[in-house]
Every structure is written in C-alpha cells, then in structure tokens.
C-alpha cells in the first residue's frame, strides 16, 4: 500500500505489473486444479517423508507455488529442528 503511494508520488508506472503477477500466481493453482483436500494430503505426505529423515516443525511447513521463472515451481519450506540432546 505504502509502496503504491510512493510509486504514485514519483510518477512511476501503472498497475499492470501487479495484474500480471497476481494472474501468474493464481493461474499456477488454477492449472493444477488442486482442491484444498488434495493440498492437505500433499502437505501431509511431504511432512511424513521429510520427518522420516530429519526432524522438522510440522506447524511450520509451507507449500507455495511460484511463477518467478519460465516454469511454475513448487517451493516447500520446512523449518528444521535441532537434534534433541541424547
């Protein structure tokens, strides 16, 4: 919001970049056609798979789809826990 104001203040370009970015994000999801249930299932599977090898914080796992490069990509963020003192 503030940035938009600053952009306007300095006579910067219009809002079409925003339109394009928002479309690209929403279309990644649209094209996959994943329902909320399917997303949850994916999240669960990924959590289980990673947890088998390393200890992660299940609350912090995030799955995002991005379209920053030529192909859409899935980005998985999983905070790693410190090994418990043995």
């Amino acid at each position: 919001m503030a940035w938009t104001f600053v952009q306007k203040l300095f006579g910067a370009k219009g809002s079409k970049g925003e339109a394009k970015n928002r479309l690209q994000v929403v279309l990644v999801y649209d094209r996959l056609g994943l329902s909320a249930d399917q997303m949850d299932a994916l999240r669960k599977d990924i959590m289980e798979t990673i947890s088998r090898h390393i200890s992660i914080d299940p609350e912090g796992v995030k799955i995002d789809f991005q379209h920053e490069h030529s192909l859409p990509e899935v980005v998985i963020n999983a905070p790693v826990r410190r090994r418990a003192a043995s």
Binding site: K13, G14, S15, K16, G17, A19, K20
Partner: peptide, 9 residues
C-alpha cells in the same frame, strides 16, 4: 501508461 496488460503480457 502501463495501467493495462499489453499484448505481450
């Protein structure tokens, strides 16, 4: 004015 998506976009 870049207020609208253009052809290439």
């Amino acid at each position: 004015k870049e207020q609208m998506l253009n052809q290439s976009d």
